[in-house]
Amino acid sequence: MDIQLDRTNDGKIKINRPTRGQKSLKWILIATAIFTVAGFFMMDYSGLVLSQAIADTLNNLYQMFLQPELSQVGFGTAMSQVVVTLSLAFLSTILGAVISLFLAFGTAVNLSKPWLSTLIKGVITIARAVPTVLWVLIFAIAAGLGSIAAVIGMMFHSVAYLVKAYSEAFEEIDEGKIEALRATGSSYWQILFQVVIPETKSYLISWTFLRFEINFGVAVAMGAAAGAGGIGYELFMSSTFYYDMNEVGMITIIILIVAIILELIANRLKIKA
């Protein structure tokens, strides 16, 4: 029997036949490795005393995480600012989720017309490609820097993210279940709310909550970058204005604790749904 064997240039037998994609991926990885190493050599190290720099960094980290304390901000203020940040995240997630749900019905190929699906997908992809901060700054033109621009901008990016997540969940639905309800004479909206949503509820909840966690992180950053207020603003003040490492550490720890609590709630929700 004649077997078609691939051999390397020096005549050794190849044991697989990589596709085009695998080949280009291999070259991308090699190029990335070269640039990473080259990058270190091209940095400007003048005026840097390595031992001094390491010692200072360690000292800063020590002050931040082992001697955290609040000085400018009181504990009550810090807590109320955390609530402000959570509210920003919550508002943008909920508004985004409701809009996304309806857009996702139009995007899922099994529930919609092909042209509508392609149209929404196209717009959404562009919206997702633009970073959240940019969206916030764009809306700041109309609303002024502050919480309104932050919420609208974060909502915009949440929609772009959730529409993709939701519509992919919808597309997983067994076609037969939709067919069964169509056969009873059900209308389009009845099918959406009696089959599509019940079947994908756990996905919808876990995706929405994941986005809420992301939005919490973004809301912290927006407090500093877009003047949206909240704990992020306090962090910005104590680091850039007062250079207070101990307070930066304390605020970071507070944010970390909130993020961990959110993560735990998310896991609990996922199990229950």
Binding site: K177, E179, A180, A183, T184, G185, Q194, E199
Partner: peptide, 18 residues
């Protein structure tokens, strides 16, 4: 018209979560 014609399926096609 479809309300006058019921249908059942090989894979039952029920909504599992309800």
């Amino acid at each position: 018209m479809r309300t006058d014609i019921g249908m059942i399926f090989q894979h039952y096609n029920l909504v599992d979560r309800l």
